[in-house]
Protein backbone atom coordinates (compact mmCIF):
# COMPACT_ATOMS: atom_id res chain seq x y z
CA UNK A 1 0.00 0.00 0.00
CA UNK A 2 1.31 3.48 -0.85
CA UNK A 3 2.20 5.60 2.21
CA UNK A 4 0.03 8.58 1.30
CA UNK A 5 -1.83 9.46 -1.87
CA UNK A 6 -1.94 13.19 -1.22
CA UNK A 7 0.23 15.19 1.19
CA UNK A 8 0.03 18.96 0.95
CA UNK A 9 1.54 21.54 3.28
CA UNK A 10 0.81 25.23 2.83
CA UNK A 11 2.33 27.97 4.96
CA UNK A 12 2.02 31.34 3.17
CA UNK A 13 5.17 33.47 3.30
CA UNK A 14 7.35 30.70 4.76
CA UNK A 15 8.79 28.58 1.92
CA UNK A 16 11.55 27.14 4.11
CA UNK A 17 9.14 26.35 6.94
CA UNK A 18 6.80 24.67 4.45
CA UNK A 19 9.55 22.33 3.23
CA UNK A 20 10.83 21.58 6.72
CA UNK A 21 7.36 20.99 8.12
CA UNK A 22 6.76 18.38 5.47
CA UNK A 23 9.90 16.51 6.60
CA UNK A 24 9.00 16.96 10.25
CA UNK A 25 5.48 15.55 9.82
CA UNK A 26 6.85 12.60 7.86
CA UNK A 27 9.40 11.91 10.63
CA UNK A 28 6.77 12.03 13.38
CA UNK A 29 4.26 9.86 11.48
CA UNK A 30 6.99 7.36 10.70
CA UNK A 31 8.14 7.29 14.34
CA UNK A 32 4.63 6.46 15.47
CA UNK A 33 4.01 4.00 12.62
CA UNK A 34 0.99 5.91 11.31
CA UNK A 35 2.08 6.71 7.80
CA UNK A 36 0.35 3.75 6.15
CA UNK A 37 -2.92 4.38 7.94
CA UNK A 38 -3.43 7.82 6.41
CA UNK A 39 -4.82 8.27 2.93
CA UNK A 40 -4.61 12.02 2.44
CA UNK A 41 -3.18 14.80 4.55
CA UNK A 42 -3.62 18.56 4.20
CA UNK A 43 -1.76 20.95 6.50
CA UNK A 44 -2.37 24.68 6.54
CA UNK A 45 -0.73 27.23 8.81
CA UNK A 46 -1.23 30.96 9.06
CA UNK A 47 1.84 32.15 10.94
CA UNK A 48 0.56 35.72 11.32
CA UNK A 49 -2.63 34.76 13.19
CA UNK A 50 -1.10 32.31 14.36
CA UNK A 51 -3.19 29.17 13.67
CA UNK A 52 -2.55 25.64 12.47
CA UNK A 53 -4.92 23.12 10.86
CA UNK A 54 -4.60 19.53 9.66
CA UNK A 55 -7.21 17.57 7.79
CA UNK A 56 -6.69 13.93 6.97
CA UNK A 57 -8.46 10.90 5.59
CA UNK A 58 -7.98 7.74 7.62
CA UNK A 59 -7.63 4.35 5.99
CA UNK A 60 -9.90 2.86 8.61
CA UNK A 61 -11.23 -0.62 9.01
CA UNK A 62 -8.54 -2.12 11.19
CA UNK A 63 -10.31 -5.16 12.66
CA UNK A 64 -10.00 -5.88 16.39
CA UNK A 65 -7.10 -8.20 17.17
CA UNK A 66 -8.28 -11.67 18.15
CA UNK A 67 -6.44 -14.49 19.90
CA UNK A 68 -6.21 -16.52 16.71
CA UNK A 69 -4.39 -13.61 14.99
CA UNK A 70 -1.57 -13.83 17.52
CA UNK A 71 -0.78 -17.54 17.34
CA UNK A 72 -1.95 -21.14 17.03
CA UNK A 73 -4.70 -22.29 19.36
CA UNK A 74 -4.73 -26.04 20.03
CA UNK A 75 -6.83 -28.26 22.25
CA UNK A 76 -4.70 -29.68 25.04
CA UNK A 77 -5.22 -31.81 28.08
CA UNK A 78 -7.64 -30.03 30.42
CA UNK A 79 -8.05 -26.96 28.24
CA UNK A 80 -6.37 -25.05 25.41
CA UNK A 81 -2.81 -24.11 24.54
CA UNK A 82 -1.90 -20.95 22.64
CA UNK A 83 1.47 -20.89 20.88
CA UNK A 84 2.12 -17.18 20.39
CA UNK A 85 3.88 -16.16 17.16
CA UNK A 86 3.69 -12.40 17.63
CA UNK A 87 4.98 -11.41 21.05
CA UNK A 88 4.21 -7.72 20.57
CA UNK A 89 0.75 -8.09 22.08
CA UNK A 90 1.62 -10.66 24.78
CA UNK A 91 0.77 -8.29 27.62
CA UNK A 92 -2.62 -7.50 26.07
CA UNK A 93 -3.28 -11.20 25.51
CA UNK A 94 -2.58 -12.12 29.13
CA UNK A 95 -4.68 -9.21 30.35
CA UNK A 96 -7.64 -10.34 28.22
CA UNK A 97 -7.29 -13.99 29.24
CA UNK A 98 -7.00 -13.13 32.94
CA UNK A 99 -10.10 -10.98 32.70
CA UNK A 100 -12.06 -13.78 30.97
CA UNK A 101 -10.83 -16.90 32.80
CA UNK A 102 -9.23 -15.61 36.00
CA UNK A 103 -5.54 -15.59 36.89
CA UNK A 104 -5.48 -19.15 38.21
CA UNK A 105 -6.82 -20.56 34.91
CA UNK A 106 -4.54 -18.76 32.44
CA UNK A 107 -0.81 -19.40 32.84
CA UNK A 108 2.33 -18.73 30.83
CA UNK A 109 4.70 -21.67 31.46
CA UNK A 110 7.03 -20.59 28.65
CA UNK A 111 7.85 -17.33 26.94
CA UNK A 112 5.72 -18.05 23.87
CA UNK A 113 3.14 -20.40 25.34
CA UNK A 114 -0.05 -19.70 27.26
CA UNK A 115 -2.16 -22.50 28.75
CA UNK A 116 -5.82 -22.14 29.67
CA UNK A 117 -7.61 -24.52 32.01
CA UNK A 118 -11.07 -24.22 30.52
CA UNK A 119 -13.25 -25.90 27.88
CA UNK A 120 -14.21 -22.57 26.34
CA UNK A 121 -12.32 -21.98 23.05
CA UNK A 122 -10.44 -18.63 23.25
CA UNK A 123 -9.83 -18.29 19.47
CA UNK A 124 -12.45 -15.60 18.86
CA UNK A 125 -11.74 -13.60 21.95
CA UNK A 126 -10.79 -9.94 21.31
CA UNK A 127 -7.30 -9.13 22.63
CA UNK A 128 -7.13 -5.45 21.86
CA UNK A 129 -8.88 -2.83 19.79
CA UNK A 130 -6.21 -1.63 17.35
CA UNK A 131 -8.47 1.06 15.97
CA UNK A 132 -8.71 2.75 19.38
CA UNK A 133 -4.91 2.54 19.79
CA UNK A 134 -4.43 4.00 16.33
CA UNK A 135 -6.67 6.95 17.20
CA UNK A 136 -4.75 7.56 20.41
CA UNK A 137 -1.45 7.53 18.51
CA UNK A 138 -2.89 9.81 15.84
CA UNK A 139 -3.97 12.37 18.45
CA UNK A 140 -0.51 12.16 20.01
CA UNK A 141 1.08 12.72 16.58
CA UNK A 142 -1.11 15.77 15.91
CA UNK A 143 -0.15 17.34 19.23
CA UNK A 144 3.52 16.73 18.44
CA UNK A 145 3.19 18.12 14.92
CA UNK A 146 1.47 21.35 16.00
CA UNK A 147 3.87 24.18 16.88
CA UNK A 148 4.52 24.18 20.58
CA UNK A 149 2.92 27.42 21.66
CA UNK A 150 -0.39 26.50 20.05
CA UNK A 151 -2.07 25.33 23.23
CA UNK A 152 -5.73 25.89 22.27
CA UNK A 153 -6.65 22.78 20.34
CA UNK A 154 -9.70 21.13 18.88
CA UNK A 155 -9.81 17.72 17.23
CA UNK A 156 -12.85 16.46 15.35
CA UNK A 157 -12.61 12.79 14.45
CA UNK A 158 -15.08 10.83 12.39
CA UNK A 159 -14.87 7.21 11.27
CA UNK A 160 -12.74 8.03 8.25
CA UNK A 161 -11.38 11.56 8.70
CA UNK A 162 -10.09 14.05 11.23
CA UNK A 163 -9.83 17.82 11.42
CA UNK A 164 -7.35 19.22 13.93
CA UNK A 165 -6.93 22.89 14.65
CA UNK A 166 -4.59 24.61 17.09
CA UNK A 167 -3.92 28.28 17.84
CA UNK A 168 -2.20 30.52 20.34
CA UNK A 169 -5.31 32.57 21.06
CA UNK A 170 -8.77 31.20 21.87
CA UNK A 171 -10.41 29.32 19.03
CA UNK A 172 -13.30 31.33 17.65
CA UNK A 173 -16.00 30.07 15.30
CA UNK A 174 -14.70 32.45 12.63
CA UNK A 175 -11.17 31.09 12.93
CA UNK A 176 -12.34 27.48 12.75
CA UNK A 177 -14.51 28.10 9.70
CA UNK A 178 -11.76 30.14 8.02
CA UNK A 179 -9.22 27.34 8.50
CA UNK A 180 -11.76 24.81 7.31
CA UNK A 181 -12.27 26.93 4.20
CA UNK A 182 -8.52 27.00 3.52
CA UNK A 183 -8.30 23.21 3.82
CA UNK A 184 -11.28 22.83 1.46
CA UNK A 185 -9.53 25.10 -1.03
CA UNK A 186 -6.40 22.93 -0.84
CA UNK A 187 -8.53 19.83 -1.34
CA UNK A 188 -10.15 21.26 -4.47
CA UNK A 189 -6.98 22.73 -5.92
Amino acid sequence: MEPMEVFKVEIPGEPFGEKKYRELIMDILQDLGLIRSLGRLYVYMDIKRPAFAVYGLIRSGIPPLKVRDLGDVAKAEGGYQIKVNNEEHMADLLKALWAAYGRERAEQPMRDTVVIASDKDPSDMVVTDLEAKFRQDLTDALIRVAPEGFRNRRNEMTDNSFFFIAAEESLTLELVSEMREQIRRMENA
Binding site: G17, L24, P147
Partner: peptide, 9 residues
Protein backbone atom coordinates in the same frame (compact mmCIF):
# COMPACT_ATOMS: atom_id res chain seq x y z
CA UNK B 1 19.03 30.18 21.58
CA UNK B 2 17.39 27.42 19.56
CA UNK B 3 14.41 28.50 17.50
CA UNK B 4 12.28 26.87 14.81
CA UNK B 5 11.60 26.95 11.11
CA UNK B 6 9.60 30.16 10.63
CA UNK B 7 11.43 33.39 9.84
CA UNK B 8 8.58 35.51 11.18
CA UNK B 9 8.64 33.73 14.57
Amino acid sequence: FIFGNFADC
